[in-house]
Structure formats: structure tokens, C-alpha cells
Design a protein around this nucleic acid. Structure first.
Lengths: 203, 203
DNA sequence: CCTCGTAGGTGTACGACGTACGCCTACAAG
DNA sequence: CTTGTAGGCGTACGTCGTACACCTACGAGG
């Protein structure tokens, strides 16, 4: 019977995402999101319990955008998983600042659950059962999480690699050499090369 | 010619680590570390430029504790890498609150560089060269990072898995089943099972 | 032994953060 | 038209990182 809500959780999350995409993770604050929506800071607390819940909404919004439809049935199972992982990566690459948030909020996200369900479907179809299936799924999630963070916090093309390549050659001969090679490995090859290794190991 | 320093970077880092181990990551603040040392907050700024540099010192201190000596030469190369990864995991498991910090400060840590150099030595000995070696190292780092975070933020034995196991069975049949299986997979098997998959894929 | 400059250590203060609390008010049901 | 519920807002508190100005302990040069 009272006054109707003027905001949907989606609009709230969209405002937070706009702040993230424009100004980065450090700029995400209750005040910034409120300003983005043209309302007062405290008004947000009619929609979320605290900042953490707002972060979860953003993660939900982004991950809900991942296509979790079963990948083409004609493909071998390893390529079907690669399709699923690629969809996840493409979605998160469009919003790099969200990547760190996904780590802590993964468990509570419906989007992740749906994606995982589809991955499990492929794994089950490939004959994975019981503990082996658990290990396979968790290894995939661990790799994707870790690789996406590496990609957005310390890309191979970044300053870190450059700094490494002129390390003292006597103590770090291989690091220096590998850093030089690394400049010729782009992000795509790094990410999917590693994924291919993992999938080969699952066979 | 002036007054000598009363603190070493190591003592500073040790104080911060004590706070982390006792009260967790959220409790780490310049004020808390200063109190731990019995000095004023601002005195810390004679030793570090800002909070980030203090975090780096902690990561350095912890990662310097990882044994980077070449693993037993008698072992096959995959087992030698497993030994190196196990050392890294053991060290970080003793200080779980440090794990999130390692992600952002990895690049600047001598400890990580030394560890990576040793891993590269094993990889080179196994015949990995050029781009393949880069991809192998990065995949290992991505997996270890991701798996350690999963382990400390959402362990399989935790509430997340329990919540998943009673999800709507019609929409998430495999998730529910897999969560039930997951309760019988301990952290050790999860971590090294995934690592074994990755190493098998490298072969 | 006595300066004296350098750098260690401190206290205060500022702006930003998350958020508890209490108030006003717009609205839909009666 | 009344009225209760919940939306929205302003203020305020405690915490954070840290800029700045100030004392002061100390080792080198006289």
C-alpha cells in the first residue's frame, strides 16, 4: 500500500557499473553511485543492506550477460568448454574493473551457477563423474579466475615484463630470456594456450 | 650523520604480518601496524611511501620464506614442479590473509621472481622453449593464484558448497549432485588434483 | 666538548569512506 | 479525505590514508 519503488536492482547495478567502467574500482563508492543516480547517498540503503550487497548486484548484472546456452553439440567436448570459457572471458573483458569483484562474490552469483551448470553438463557428457568431475570444474574455475586477474593486473605486454627483461642476468638468466619471449605472446594466446594445456590434461 | 634508523623493513613487515595473522586483512591499517610497533602512525611514513608499499613489504617477507632451492634432481620434471608449487602453497597457507595481497603485488616481489626462475629452470630442463615456456609458466601462476584464492575465500567444505547442494533440482541438477560429491573432496586433493591435470597437459 | 644540520618521530588536521539514526513526505489502500 | 507504510534525505560518527609543521636525538666537523 505504500509508495512504490522508483529503482530496480538492475538500474542500481547499472549505475554502479557505469561508475566502474568510467572511473575504475577505486572510485566505486556509495556516494559515487548515488550521484550517478541523482539521489542521496542514504537512499541506496533502501535497496541494498551494505556496499557488499551492491557489489554482488554488479557482479550479478555482468555475469547474467554470459550466454549459458549449451554450446554447439557438434563440437568435441574440449572445444565446447573452450566456447563457454571464451564467453565468460569476453563478458568480463568488457568490464575489467569487475574482475576483482567476481572473486569474492562468485559463490553468491546466479550467473556463475548457471555457467557452472552448463560446464558440468559438458563434463558429464564427456564421462566425468564424482570426485573427478569436482576437481575438473574447480580447476577450470581456478584457472579462469587466476588468468583473468593476471591479464588485467599484470599483462604480459605491461611494464612488469619490461622490468623483468633487464633483471641481473647472473641471478635471473631464464627470467630475462623468457620475458623477451613473452613480448611476442599476446593476451589471446596466453589465455587460451594455458586453457588448452588444462583441457589436454583433462582428457 | 643524522640519527640512525630504529626499524628495519623486515621488522616493519613482521609487525604488519602479525596484525594480518591475528586480526585478518580488514584489520590491516597504518594505525594498527604503528600500534603493533609502539610508535606513532606517521612514523611509518619514514619507512614506506604509502600503504601499498607496506603491503609489498609483507608480501616480500612471506614470499622470501619460500624455499627456491632446486628440487631433488632424481625426480621427473612434473614432480619437481609439484614440489615447488607445494612449497609456495605451504608458505601461503600459513598466512591466509596475505593471499589476496600477493595478487596485486606479485610483479614487484623478489621472492616470486626467484621462485619463477627455479620453475623456469625445471621447464627449460624438460625442453620447454620460447612461447611454449612462457605459456607454461603463466598457466602455472594463474592456476596457483586462482586455486589459492578459491581455497581461502570459498573452500569446498564451506557454506557455499552446502548452499549449492540444495539448489532447485530442476534448474541445477548437476550442481546439486556435484556439490554432494564435493563434500568428499578435501582441499589437498582439490588443489593437487587440479595441478596434476595441468601438469599432465603440459607433457 | 660543543655546535649544527639531518633525518627520525609526533600531533594535528583534512577529506573521503561506510553507515546508523531520525526526520519529512509521497503515495495507495481504506 | 484520512492514514500507515516505506521511500528518500540530512546530519553525524568513527575509521581510514596521509599532508604538513613541529620538536628532538644523534653523529660528524670544528
Amino acid at each position: 500500500m505504500p509508495r512504490p519503488r522508483s529503482l530496480s536492482p538492475d538500474r542500481l547495478a547499472a549505475a554502479a557499473l557505469a561508475v566502474l567502467d568510467r572511473d575504475g574500482l577505486a572510485a566505486l563508492s556509495m556516494r559515487a553511485v548515488a550521484a550517478e543516480l541523482g539521489m542521496s547517498t542514504m537512499a541506496l540503503y533502501r535497496y541494498v543492506r551494505d556496499r557488499e550487497e551492491l557489489e554482488l548486484l554488479v557482479v550479478e548484472l555482468v555475469l547474467a550477460g554470459v550466454d549459458t546456452a549449451p554450446p554447439p553439440a557438434g563440437l568435441p567436448w574440449r572445444e565446447r568448454i573452450e566456447v563457454l570459457v571464451r564467453r565468460m572471458r569476453d563478458t568480463l573483458s568488457a568490464h575489467p574493473s569487475v574482475v576483482p569483484l567476481t572473486v569474492s562474490h562468485r559463490h553468491h552469483s546466479l550467473g556463475v551457477l548457471r555457467w557452472s551448470e552448463t560446464v558440468l553438463t559438458v563434463l558429464a557428457g564427456a564421462g566425468f563423474e564424482g570426485g573427478r568431475r569436482v576437481v575438473a570444474l574447480r580447476a577450470l574455475i581456478a584457472y579462469v579466475n587466476g588468468a583473468l586477474q593476471l591479464e588485467h593486473l599484470g599483462a604480459l605486454s605491461g611494464a612488469g615484463t619490461a622490468a623483468i627483461s633487464d633483471l641481473p642476468a647472473d641471478e635471473f638468466p631464464l627470467m630475462a630470456a623468457t620475458a623477451r619471449d613473452a613480448r611476442r605472446v599476446d593476451a589471446e594466446r596466453e589465455f587460451f594456450g594455458g586453457l588448452a594445456v588444462l583441457l589436454r590434461g583433462l582428457e
